[in-house]
Design a protein around this nucleic acid. Structure first.
Length: 294
DNA sequence: TACCAGGAGAGCG
DNA sequence: CGCTCTCATGGT
């Protein structure tokens, strides 16, 4: 029998070195919206509301839960951030980047949503990626249970749902030339050509090779999925921002071939290079005055 | 108005 | 292999 006194749709996490706003707003995930001081989003098919006060993260969900382990994993609240940043190279550029976004965590996202989202990310600004994904979810995702008075929320469309859409329907979500990539990727998953859950048990090169088999997935997007969904700590996505940060801090601002930057990154930043990458990315975007959260 | 965006793929020599 | 061009759309 349910016990009415238990608040099964609320919990809290006690955290140290955690900046929820930086973590949810830094461009690793695209569905979190800040409304009246609280972050609204969907994890594991559950509509959530998160906010932080000092060392506590408050959680409210639309549906009651028997465990919150899945959310602790997504938010990576138990990761030892100090131990991670201690592995970074002891040098001025990394110290500055860490100081500029202390408390930023890498999330552990769901593979399909992460893969699909980054297929839609290529040569798009983060604000536009958010818009495309929001439209895709509103039009084609399953409507979710929300708390009374809350705005409507939608699940991220499943591979089955995306595979059933026409290219024109996807293009109506403003994803442009990425539409056939997303559609074909969904169809490949539906046909079980690649099982995203199986990638969890592979080593980094094997998992990367599998991801590169999807249309619209090259080295950069593959590394994003390896880092943000599968948690491979050395995956190191190099986009235009990271490229600029690396050139500025390590190559006297000279133009450097992409392959050379990747080689440098793989040999220089240590066992949590992917974390280092996100600090370089976010600190540069912050210093350039980007609007990082809505 | 130009230029650019968390790139990838195809065509070329 | 490395280079260049194209792809679609909207922010700045």
């Amino acid at each position: 029998m349910p016990q009415p006194s238990l608040k099964l749709n609320e919990t809290t996490f006690t955290v140290r070195d955690y900046d929820l706003a930086a973590t949810l707003g830094c461009g690793q995930a695209f569905r979190w919206e800040l409304r009246q001081g609280r972050w609204h989003g969907v994890v594991g098919g559950i509509s959530l509301e998160l906010w932080q006060a000092e060392e506590t993260i408050f959680v409210r969900s639309a549906a009651p839960q028997t465990t919150w382990n899945w959310l602790a994993d997504y938010l990576q609240v138990h990761a030892d951030l100090a131990a991670i940043t201690d592995t970074f190279p002891k040098e001025a550029p990394m110290r500055r980047a860490v100081a500029a976004c202390r408390g930023l965590r890498l999330l552990r996202q769901e593979p399909w949503e992460c893969l699909a989202s980054f297929i839609l990310s290529s040569t798009k600004q983060i604000v536009q990626i958010r818009q495309i994904i929001a439209r895709l979810c509103e039009r084609h995702g399953h409507p979710m249970t929300v708390r009374p008075g809350e705005a409507a929320a939608f699940a991220f469309p499943t591979p089955v749902q995306v595979a059933a859409l026409s290219e024109a329907q996807l293009r109506d979500c403003k994803m442009g030339f990425r539409a056939p990539y997303l559609r074909q990727t969904a169809q490949m998953i539906l046909a079980n050509e690649v099982n995203l859950d199986d990638l969890r048990r592979l080593d980094l090169p094997s998992a990367r090779a599998s991801l590169l088999g999807f249309p619209g997935v090259g080295p950069k997007i593959a590394d994003c999925v390896l880092l943000f969904a599968y948690g491979f700590p050395t995956a190191f996505p190099v986009d235009v921002w990271v490229m600029k940060a690396l050139r500025r801090s390590y190559f006297q601002n000279r133009r450097v071939p992409l392959a050379q930057l990747r080689y440098f990154a793989a040999s220089h930043f240590g066992p949590y290079a992917g974390y280092a990458q996100q600090y370089l990315f976010h600190s540069l975007r912050r210093s350039e005055g980007k609007k990082l959260s809505p």
